[in-house]
Structures are given as C-alpha cells and as structure tokens.
Computed example of a mutant assay.
Amino acid sequence: MTELKQDTWVVVTDSEKVLFLRNLTDHADPNLDVMEKDEQENPSDREQGANRPGRMGDGGPGQKSALDDTDWHELQKERFAADLAERLYAEAHKGAFQRLVLVASPAVLGDLRAALHKEVTDRIVAEVPKTLTNHPIREIEALVKKELESA
C-alpha cells in the first residue's frame, strides 16, 4: 500500500487541464490544497484547421487520392503532456516536491511517461489511471486515497 504522506504532490490532469495539489495532512485524512490550476484552450480540429485536406495524383489517368490533414486538436493534447512534463522537471529540479502522485486518463499517463525526465519519475510514488479533473477536491481526496490503498 502506498500512503499519501504530508507534502506529497498530487497532479490531476487530462489533456487540457491540470490541477497541482499538495497534501497538507497524512494518509488517514488527506487534505489536498490547490496550489495552482491551469487550463489551455484547445478548440476542435475543424476550428483550428485552415485548409481542406490535400489531394495527390495517383498512378492512373485523372485519379487522385485524399491526404490526411494534421489533427491540430490531437497535436495540442500531446504538446500539453510534454509541457506538463517540462514543468514537473523544473519543479523537481528546484526541490519543490519529493513525492508525486499522477492522476490522469490512461492515454495521458502514457504520453506523460514518455515525456517525463528521470528526476521526476524517481519521485513518482503512484499513478491513478482516472480522469478526475472535473471532480470536487473532496472527491479527489477520497478517490486517490482509495486507489492508493488498493494498490
């Protein structure tokens, strides 16, 4: 069982929002304090794209094939994970936290794992594969505690 010790950082994120929380108490009665919230604007791909998908000449006379356009919405989600990984590295390098719990959907956790520096991964004590960014803090406290107890 992993415990949610005092001063453990809990980072709750999806691909567009992040909550930086710090546990003020102990595992028995966690009290997560919001240190910072951040949300990026990520409009739908249709709103971000400027051009129609391209077409390319095929081998046959008068034939053309459609080309996939860049999915700007999805690209921004991947960049969000990379930006968050950089932020966590900077905070770890400053010594801002010694223990870290990551709470994110499985897809976002995968993107984060790929981008995190060793200095950050060495401080991760648990990962919770759930999307909790729109939950009240009290629910996040209870759900994270429950997940850590069952791990």
Rank of each mutant, 00 (worst) to 15 (best):
D38R: 14
S15D: 13
T2Y: 04
H93C: 04
A90S: 11
E47K: 12
E16S: 12
S105H: 06
E36Y: 07
D122K: 15
A114W: 06
E91C: 01
A126P: 02
V120M: 09
E86L: 05
N42G: 03
D71C: 07
E139N: 11
D83G: 06
A96G: 05
L24W: 06
D122L: 08
V144I: 02
V12S: 02
L109G: 09
A90E: 15
P30V: 09
L100P: 00
E127Y: 05
R87Q: 13
H135L: 10
A115L: 03
W72I: 03
E149N: 14
W72K: 11
D83K: 14
E119Q: 13
V18W: 06
K145T: 11
G49F: 07
A114T: 13
T25I: 03
L4R: 12
V34Q: 01
R79T: 12
Q76Y: 00
G59N: 07
H73I: 00
S150W: 04
L4I: 10
A28M: 13
G95T: 02
V34I: 13
A96E: 13
A114C: 00
K130Q: 14
E36W: 02
A107F: 00
A50T: 13
T133H: 01
L19Y: 07
K77D: 01
A50F: 09
D45C: 10
A115C: 09
A81H: 01
A92D: 04
N31E: 15
V144M: 04
Q40C: 04
L75C: 08
N51K: 15
L100E: 02
V10K: 10
Y89T: 14
A90K: 15
N134G: 13
A90H: 11
M35K: 13
M1F: 10
V12K: 03
R22V: 06
A50E: 13
A28R: 15
A82P: 04
V108W: 00
R79M: 09
A114I: 03
L75P: 05
V11D: 07
S15I: 04
K130L: 12
S105M: 02
V34R: 06
E41P: 05
G59C: 08
L75F: 00
P129R: 13
D26F: 03
T25P: 09
Q48I: 02
E86Y: 01
V128Y: 03
A126R: 09
S105W: 09
R138H: 11
K146E: 15
V101S: 09
E16A: 15
R113K: 12
G110V: 09
A90M: 05
A115S: 10
H117E: 12
Y89L: 10
A82G: 03
S44A: 12
A82Y: 06
S105Y: 03
T70R: 11
M35T: 11
V18H: 00
D26H: 07
R99E: 10
V103G: 08
V12L: 07
Q6G: 08
Q76T: 10
D33W: 02
W72G: 03
E36R: 13
A28H: 14
R52V: 12
E39S: 06
Q63L: 03
L67N: 09
E41G: 06
A28S: 15
R138E: 15
R87H: 12
L24Q: 15
L109F: 07
A82L: 08
E3F: 03
R87S: 07
R123E: 04
R46F: 12
E86F: 01
D111Q: 14
A28K: 15
L88Y: 00
N23I: 08
R123C: 06
